[in-house]
Design a protein around this nucleic acid. Structure first.
Lengths: 246, 246
DNA sequence: CGGCTTATTGACATACGTCAACTATTGTGG
DNA sequence: CCACAATAGTTGACGTATGTCAATAAGCCG
């Protein structure tokens, strides 16, 4: 059964052009696990042992930082500080994605933790194996570079949004990204994640997400539960100052 | 003279292991330009024509978005809107770096503009050439993957900071990153960029950067002009809740 | 139906952006 | 080398966006 799942991995573009020998090693050394929601795949700070490939489900990359009052008045007296862990979702990956290939390639500790946000089937491929593919499998290095290039663009778009746009605009942009690229007319969408997760991903509080949703009502965006209706995509686009760069 | 500069390109890790034929093509098809400060290498939205390699100097990747009142009350009446271009620095690259390799690989329009923030010598390598290297030069694809992996980590760190930490904390973290990795003791730093640029990069207004610098004074960070003195690195680290993940 | 979680709303505090005035620094021509 | 202008940086006052806490409402599931 595991073998069957690993065969699925071989079907992904990233692994499609591996040599027979490499395919064999992958099937021999990799394994598949089914994870419930909220399973931790790895934690921030630990060494990159595996490349995680999502066969089905959905995984959030979450960054955490000890949060304190961070007030200047309170001196560097660790004891007296109120330290609460704060976290933010940096990226959400779905089927066919690879969770953090950068740490694996560079053989460095993960900068973030990964947690399933839906029941998921995950393939675990040993990091040294992946690194050896990079040296020995010509097509693999190229596929990895392409994958990383796409991921880089996703992140830089997010960073741009974070630095230049309001929470409400980011929300609008997110909704547009779910309405599969149409430029105008109406759209009906189902939100794939719960509010808390979405808020964390968009970089705002859940409370503000609610308020932002309420605000969007006035430009023809109606949300109830996970069901969403956009009356006029163009109107939302203009509100969000969305460019077409993907 | 150009050839001499292009030879420098060949010395960078990214191009170090190219075949002789590839080196020849690179020297034949690439060229070098010296740019003053504030030169635009390319603009957001245009197709990726070249891979830009920084031989010396410094280049900012800057994202821009039309900014408006973005008020819900004002309807989608483009005429009545006050549209001002807002921009933010997404990343700063220095000698040895490659500016936006992602767009070149994917053959997509740039998502951001690039502007020199210091006089710079830039090598222009035609995008199709780079893409052909990816297919035909085994070592190049790997080098590109490694480079992209590093860039991905830089971006994700920034995104994490943006979502989890205050402006002052980001500033502190930046100063620490300039004090070449020491964990404690004092440090003396020279800021490599002006305040406006730094503020934009850290995702805050220049005014707030000033105030943040003032705040840091109370934890032993003294800045005058571009010269910076940190009394106790550990103190700053604890204030900024800096983790050690790079 | 009742108890649980999840989402919304309101009141309030805080961080941050903006505008304007002021000061410091840099550069330039006499 | 000084005087002056131009640019860059700082400071204060103020408004807005967003986070936080608490209370309420709405879904969800046994």
């Amino acid at each position: 059964m595991e073998q069957a799942h690993l065969t699925a991995v071989l079907g992904f573009p990233l692994f499609a052009a591996l040599s027979d020998e490499a395919r064999g090693r992958l099937q021999a050394e990799g394994f598949v696990q089914s994870q419930p929601v909220d399973a931790i795949l790895f934690e921030q700070g630990q060494g990159a042992q595996f490349l995680h490939v999502i066969l089905s489900g959905s995984v959030a990359l979450v960054g955490s930082a000890a949060a304190t009052e961070a007030s200047v008045d309170v001196p560097a007296d660790a004891q007296s500080r109120v330290v609460v862990d704060r976290e933010a979702i940096i990226e959400i990956f779905g089927a066919g994605d690879v969770v953090t290939i950068a740490a694996v390639l560079l053989n460095l500790p993960y900068m973030m933790s990964a947690r399933t946000i839906a029941p998921s089937r995950i393939a675990y491929l040993p990091a040294p194996l992946i690194r050896s593919f990079l040296d020995n499998e010509a097509s693999f290095a190229k596929a990895v570079a392409m994958k990383l290039a796409k991921h880089w663009r996703l992140l830089s778009r997010q960073l741009k949004d974070q630095k230049l746009r309001s929470g409400t605009q980011r929300l609008g942009g997110y909704l547009l990204s779910l309405s599969d690229g149409r430029m105008n007319g109406a759209a009906t969408i189902d939100l794939p994640v719960d509010r808390r997760t979405l808020a964390s991903w968009l970089g705002m509080s859940a409370e503000n997400l609610s308020r932002s949703l309420a605000q969007l009502k006035s430009i023809g965006v109606h949300v109830s539960g996970r069901h969403t209706q956009i009356d006029d995509i163009a109107r939302v686009r203009s509100f969000c100052l969305e460019d077409d760069l993907r």
